[in-house]
Simulated scan of single mutants.
Amino acid sequence: MEAKFLVTLREDMISTELTLTNSTKSVIQLRGGIMSHLTVSTPDATYAIGLQGSNYCSKHAPSEFRIIPPAHSKKDEKSSEFIRLLARNGFDLLFSPWGTKKHDGHGEDRERDREESSDYAQMNDEFSKIYTSAPVEFTVIDRGRRNSVVIQRSGYEELYMFSPGSDHDWYGKYAFVCVGPCALLKPILLGPGGIWKGAQCLYNPNI
């Protein structure tokens, strides 16, 4: 398999595009995603707009690759180890299988689906969600910084969102939320000779 990762930077935008080409004679099943850390004043002042009615389940992403306070030393070591493995193994690690169970939406491997009830969802509580039917565009606003980011995706059907909650200092190093398109519950199936493209665009209309 060939993988190309293209990042485009502009003053008010950053876009990330992943292109996969299957040069084998077999169908390849892939899981993974693009995770972005957004600095915020505090998750208590941060809201996701435009996700009302979207279905999701509560489930953590299969890696420790996120910002972790030093107090969580064991988790911090796992995160550092993941980064070292990523540098050594590249896309093989990003698209490694997520456990050994089948992710068919049944049994203990997946919590029941829920529906986002608010179109102005506050991100103050700690949570980890995978949206299975979210719009291709929504907005994250930070009322503390009076800032907003428009998030767009293509190719990916699912959306991952994580908030560590509001236990850390306002405007501190660990005041952040994670968002990103993904294929975690439903894998990408790429047939022989097939090409797949997935992308994310973060746009700041305030600049």
Rank of each mutant, 00 (worst) to 15 (best):
I28T: 09
I188R: 09
N147I: 11
G107M: 03
N204S: 09
E137V: 14
D109H: 05
K25C: 02
N55S: 14
Y120H: 11
P187A: 00
M123E: 01
E77L: 07
R145N: 14
I14H: 15
I207W: 14
I49T: 10
F82N: 05
M123F: 01
S79T: 13
K186W: 15
K186G: 08
D142S: 04
G90T: 03
F65Y: 12
M123W: 02
T19D: 04
R114T: 07
Y120E: 14
R10L: 05
F91P: 09
G180K: 05
E17M: 03
L20W: 05
E157Q: 14
Y174K: 10
G53A: 01
G32E: 04
A48H: 02
L9H: 15
N124Y: 12
V177S: 07
W196A: 00
F91N: 06
D76F: 06
S26F: 06
E108L: 11
A61S: 07
D125Q: 12
L202D: 11
E157D: 13
M123A: 09
H168I: 03
G90A: 03
N55V: 06
P192I: 03
S163N: 09
H168G: 04
A121L: 10
L85H: 12
F65D: 10
Y160L: 03
G193M: 09
W98F: 10
Q52R: 01
E111Y: 15
T8Q: 14
A48G: 15
L159I: 03
S54P: 14
P69D: 01
D125Y: 15
N124L: 01
S36Q: 11
T19Y: 01
E116H: 09
G32I: 02
H72P: 06
I141P: 11
L189M: 12
D92K: 12
P192S: 03
K129E: 14
I195C: 08
E126Q: 13
G99C: 00
L9Q: 13
Y47D: 07
V27Q: 13
E64M: 12
G107D: 00
I141Q: 13
L85Y: 12
I151P: 11
R31G: 02
I151S: 09
T19E: 05
D119E: 05
D109R: 04
D167F: 13
S41H: 13
L20P: 07
V179D: 12
K101N: 08
P62G: 01
S79K: 15
R31H: 05
H72W: 13
Q152M: 10
T139N: 10
H168K: 14
S117G: 06
F138M: 06
L202S: 10
G32N: 10
V40N: 04
